[in-house]
Design a protein around this nucleic acid. Structure first.
Length: 292
DNA sequence: TTTATTTGACCCGA
DNA sequence: TCGGGTCAAATAAA
């Protein structure tokens, strides 16, 4: 048993992230192919667009979570230098008292980089963030936004992230804006058991944002405290979703709830079960490949 | 009134 | 010296 855990810990998680990113890219491509042939005055077309956005949204969240965990290396001690020569950001944020004067030591260019992700939904990563700055960056068209964890005040969580729109994206005809999100410092806060769904999925079409507003309060069930080390090294725990079938079912409900409610587009229970099983099998298969 | 965001200034590191 | 990260006052929104 312990041998299994050890081999599990030695998995090259980058492979998993790579595969999920590939899947994400394929979804974007698929969406870009389908959207142009949809009739936008059609209600079902709206639902399809929304379904795509939700899928992309969810996969982004998972990728971000994995990257945050992997880059952290499972080390819960924020003071440990991982050998890359970088100092902990906390050291750079201390308030020093010298000769009776208080000096705020501004941080951080060397803050611990804990991950990065390219996403169409930079707001969606399971944490709540507060924007504290925006800067135009030289030689780039788009400004960079700076966010810190909303629990910095209450719990002293020093996690921050920067969000910058990628110029031109992957394809010129893409309707999805892509953002590069860089994460710094590990979250030390405890958050609620529910993952936070995005407020926005930015696209070039105002139609999409109105659709997504409707779903802004959607929540995915998550029974574990994903900020704490999880002793049971199962795939579903790694994804911070302890019950994969429940997670898949929630995904299905989010994706097709309105479609099924709005009649003509009827989806059988069998199809739902099949889809959920496929999601579970895909995930477990991916992990099994890594273990072998 | 409280909370969140914006934005110019300040500061640090390369 | 310059680029970029953060602060904090001003402003907007709830």
């Amino acid at each position: 048993m312990s041998a299994n855990i050890e081999s599990f810990c030695c998995i090259d998680h980058r492979m998993i992230i790579q595969e999920m990113k590939r899947e994400h890219g394929l979804l974007i491509d698929l969406k870009n192919h389908i959207i142009p042939i949809l009739r936008f005055n059609n209600v079902q077309a709206d639902h399809i667009v929304h379904a795509f956005d939700d899928i992309l949204c969810c996969s982004n969240g998972i990728i971000s979570k994995i990257q945050a965990e992997v880059c952290d290396g499972g080390n819960s001690d924020p003071g440990i230098d991982k050998g890359n020569g970088r100092n902990n950001a906390l050291d750079n944020m201390k308030v020093f008292i010298e000769d009776g004067t208080v000096t705020k030591k501004k941080r951080r260019k060397n803050a611990q980089h804990t991950g990065s992700v390219v996403t169409a939904t930079p707001d969606y990563d399971g944490y709540e963030w507060r924007k504290y700055g925006q800067k135009s960056i030289s030689k780039t068209k788009h400004s960079r936004s700076y966010y810190r964890c909303t629990n910095q005040k209450g719990q002293g969580c020093m996690a921050t992230k920067t969000v910058q729109q990628i110029e031109n994206g992957n394809s010129s005809n893409s309707v999805v804006k892509l953002y590069n999100v860089d994460y710094f410092c590990k979250h030390t806060c405890k958050v609620s058991n529910e993952m936070v769904c995005p407020d926005i999925v930015e696209t070039d079409s105002p139609k999409y944002s109105s659709i997504n507003d409707k779903y802004a309060s959607t929540r995915l069930t998550n029974h574990s405290d994903d900020h704490q080390p999880n002793n049971e090294m199962k795939p579903e725990n790694f994804f911070a979703v302890p019950d994969m079938s429940l997670f898949s079912e929630n995904m299905w409900d989010i994706m097709f709830e309105d479609v099924t409610m709005n009649s003509t587009f009827s989806l059988e229970q069998e199809a739902k079960d099949s889809w959920i099983k496929h999601q579970q099998d895909s995930t477990i298969h991916l992990w099994a490949d890594e273990l072998c």
